[in-house]
Nucleic acid binder design. Structure first.
Lengths: 194, 194
DNA sequence: AGTGTCATGTCAGTTGCTGTCATCAGCATA
DNA sequence: TATGCTGATGACAGCAACTGACATGACACT
């Protein structure tokens, strides 16, 4: 066997998740995480840009998934169609592990710094989807709007899914939110600005 | 005159904005800000919870403005109507000082930590508006959606306004985005989830 | 054997932020 | 006038998040 135990990153991640869950995010120091993983604090920061990033480094893969789904939607699909297809793809990928998602979300919900990081990751996803829509020829503003609205739907659907006591899956809530959105925006609107 | 120069908070804010503008946010230390304001670092942190908050502490007033506008919208107004009215109120309040807004936005755009803080402030606004809508009797999901979508519209309209070279005012872009949203969501949609 | 690479360790330093106690003008009240 | 309280600030010590610089030693390749 090699000089070092294998999978340093994975050990750090596991140790961090365990400690964040036990004591909470703020009450956990980087040195403690490293120690539990059998490494040093310095090495922790070589793998993760900061303490928060442990919970979010998977966002890159999620972004690729969304972008590919948007790009791969049929030519005939409207912007919202393409976004809806992308969200459905997310369900297919992460839909099973609701318990893990719950645990992670509980940790995030307890700490404002983590919520900030989550929001900027979501914004990154929206931005990437908007770019993908523009590559499909969708005009600038429409692309931004469809992507941003799609992420809003995802956030709301995800929250409801996490807190759902039945076994309804994520795409159920996505569909529900999407329909409700259409109902909400169909109203008169903008009359106060004219 | 008193023992202390008056308006410590204002002096700190002014010093911070100046330094953030000159050297950038990261390159400015809390001690430097305090020194320029004729105070100590400790006092800086008594007025502002952290370095970032200097740029965002006005958000409380903005929240009140939005909430009051939503609450004060006529009974007949749909959720989106109420949200649109609230955004129009923001334009009336902050619409004139575009140059200040530009400067502030430039500083934020250059630093991810500041973007995170901006996003959580926006999320707070959305949440407050959603609550205000619920108090009007709007159902749960619809309230969240209308508020979240309203903030998305605001963000996009604000960005376009900041970068606009003509003299079109903020409400112009809000109206534009709102109409575009209606067009975008009116499409078929959700067919991929059925 | 020699040489370079790569993951990790070690150490020292900066900065954001916090807790705690001291100071001292101004005000009230006796 | 004396006394005591209050509220804003300073002074100081300390922790924890990160960063830069350099050292180490197993492994691979030649």
């Amino acid at each position: 066997m090699g000089r070092w135990e294998p999978n340093a990153r994975g050990r750090l991640e596991q140790a961090a998740l365990a400690l964040y869950g036990e004591r909470g995010f703020e009450q956990t120091t980087a040195a403690e995480i490293a120690k539990r993983a059998g490494l040093t604090e310095r090495t922790f920061f070589r793998y993760f840009a900061d303490k928060r990033e442990v919970l979010f480094w998977g966002a890159g893969a999620l972004r690729d998934l969304l972008v590919n789904a948007v790009a791969g939607a049929p030519e005939s699909a409207t912007p919202i169609d393409a976004v809806a297809a992308a969200l459905a793809a997310v369900d297919a990928m992460f839909g099973e592990r609701r318990d893990g998602a719950r645990q992670r979300q509980r940790i995030i919900a307890e700490n404002p710094e983590l919520q900030e990081r989550e929001l900027i990751k979501m914004a990154t996803l929206a931005s990437a989807m908007a770019d993908a829509l523009r590559r499909r020829g969708v005009p600038d503003t429409a692309a931004s709007l469809a992507a941003e609205v799609g992420i809003a739907i995802f956030r709301i659907a995800f929250e409801r899914w996490i807190n759902d006591t039945d076994q309804r899956d994520l795409s159920h809530f996505i569909r529900e939110s999407l329909d409700e959105l259409k109902a909400v925006t169909a109203g008169s609107a903008s009359s106060f600005l004219s």
